[in-house]
Design a protein around this nucleic acid. Structure first.
Length: 459
RNA sequence: GCAGGUAUAGUUUAGUGGUAAAACAUUUGCUUCCCAAGCAAAAGUUGCGGGUCCGAUUCCCGCUACCUGCUCCA
């Protein structure tokens, strides 16, 4: 089979109503995408599956939905205001871009602490030591430019005074700042986790690769708070849970998944690992599991002046819990799910067709109601109007029955049911399973339970 | 952000300095009826802005978007 390309996925998404280019009628807007009628269903189902797995079925995980706009002090505590955005210099000759601190560290063989230097000091050091461009060997540098990937907006307070407000570049701060609220109101005992699904915003320079990297994206993540001695076990547990989720619940192929340990860790991190998926653009990060130690809570304790200490109810010992973060991009997972489910089938007459092999509970439509002929539409609409109360359904009477089957195979609908002339006599419909292609006669009064059970059994 | 490339209908693609086309998809009617049948009809296209020209979808410039590579990637 030919390799799937990102263009094929983009074209499929656009023509079938999954994803459209953002602001398309105005010539587009870089790295934004709008989810269409089918896309929003699939994405919601992915989010529901994640929430069910990690919150609903885990009695020690609590949900939260924090505000996107937060007190700017949050981003001072997190370090984003100061250090988000690395000092970059371009070689004027070969146009390559480098991090100034990396240039200094490499030149000095780590005898100089570039991290502690100001931009002016970095520039001076590079000039004084005549550091060459590693690519072309010239010494003609631009000045340092910092790029802040946080979007800003402003809030008008009094008169013309305006305060800068940031759109959150990550959701997890919402968990940290609510740590005490949630621990107290839920009477939660360590170890416990706080989970959240929500949008984040990053002013990325990088080209997007469709949904892979966008300026506005949705994260599904949780923060596990635990004793330091339990933290590595929690880290390892979440590696396995994260893998099991994308493999068993979402249905990604095992041979397209792998762990990827980080070589370079953030200065506060004790361990970090990604799960990568083999996208059409190659192996790329799908989710991350990071051991963050007590850094986040300690910073908020320091900046807010409020205690973040947890009191062990058995020993009365007070301590800052360690944090293990598990984070996965909803849009990235959406993309991986589509790439994984998109199958080109070869037919007997040498033609090909697309089948979306989605897990039934992820499919945009669960059921398609198809009258065999248009003069059966009255009965078919009765069935449709009843089923749509329980499932996402589509009703289609246009074209031949075979064509309608194919339309729904292409968008991943697991069940097609057909109303024929016998239905008027025996009150039964033919229900056809997309994966097995098996057909069954089912009484209309049993349909709801039949479909419900089929969706459950598949999990 | 850098280099190169691309932009024609919903999709995939032809084509042209002088009224823009095919296939598939879509809509309507007839016909058929359990896996893309057939017939008839309809609707729909040169990314945006500027320049050259009598005339630009075609040539030039700018913008925007996408693709490939680089860079970046708490």
């Amino acid at each position: 089979m030919e390799e799937l390309t990102m263009q094929q996925i983009v074209a499929f998404c656009k023509s079938r109503g999954f994803v459209f280019p953002g602001s398309e009628i105005y010539g587009g807007f870089a790295n934004t995408w709008d989810f269409g009628p089918l896309g929003v269903e699939l994405k919601n189902n992915i989010k529901k599956a994640w929430w069910k797995t990690f919150v609903q079925e885990d009695s020690s995980t609590y949900g939260v939905d924090a505000a996107i706009l937060m007190n700017p002090r949050v981003w001072e505590a997190s370090g984003h205001v100061q250090s988000f955005g690395d000092p970059k210099m371009d070689c004027k000759v070969c146009k390559q871009r480098f991090r100034a601190d990396t240039l200094v560290e490499n030149f000095s063989k780590n005898t100089v602490s570039a991290e502690a230097m100001t931009n002016e000091e970095l520039e001076k050091y590079i000039e004084d030591n005549k550091i060459k461009c590693p690519n072309c060997g010239n010494k003609d540098w631009t000045s340092i430019r910092k790029f802040n990937p946080m979007f800003t907006t402003s809030r008008q307070m009094i008169g013309d005074e305006k305060d800068i407000v940031y759109l959150r570049p990550e959701t997890c701060q919402g968990e940290y700042i609510n740590f005490q609220n949630i621990q107290r109101t839920m009477r939660a005992k360590v170890p416990f986790a706080i989970a959240q699904i929500g949008k984040s915003f990053r002013n990325e320079i990088t080209p997007g690769n469709f949904l892979f990297r966008t300026v506005e994206f949705e994260q599904m993540e949780l923060q596990k708070f635990c004793k330091v001695e339990d933290s590595m076990k929690a880290y390892d547990d979440y590696k396995q849970k994260a893998l099991s989720f994308v493999k068993d619940v979402i249905g990604l192929d095992v041979d397209k998944l792998r762990f990827h340990d980080h070589d370079k860790l953030a200065h506060y991190a004790k361990a970090a690992c990604d799960i990568q998926f083999n996208f059409p653009i190659g192996w790329q990060e799908l989710n991350g599991i990071h051991h963050r130690g007590e850094w986040d809570l300690s910073r908020h304790q320091e900046f807010s002046g409020k205690t973040m200490l947890y009191t062990d109810p058995f020993t009365n010992e007070k301590f800052l819990p360690n944090v293990v973060e598990y984070s996965i991009g909803a849009d990235r997972l959406f993309l991986a799910t589509l790439c994984n489910a998109y199958k080109v089938e070869k037919l007997e007459n040498d033609e090909t067709r697309v089948v979306l092999k989605l897990k039934p509970y992820l499919a945009p439509y669960k059921v398609a109601v198809l009258p065999l002929q248009k003069n059966l539409s009255e009965k078919a609409l009765v069935v449709y109007n009843n089923l749509k109360k329980y499932f996402s359904c589509d009703y289609d009477e246009a074209g031949s029955i075979g064509k309608r089957y194919r339309r729904h195979d292409e968008i991943g609908t697991p069940f097609c049911l057909t109303i024929d002339f016998d239905t008027l006599e025996d009150n039964c419909v033919t229900i056809r399973d997309r994966d097995t292609m098996k057909q069954e006669r089912v009484n209309i009064s049993d349909l709801k339970n039949y479909i419900y059970n089929s969706l459950e059994n598949n999990k």
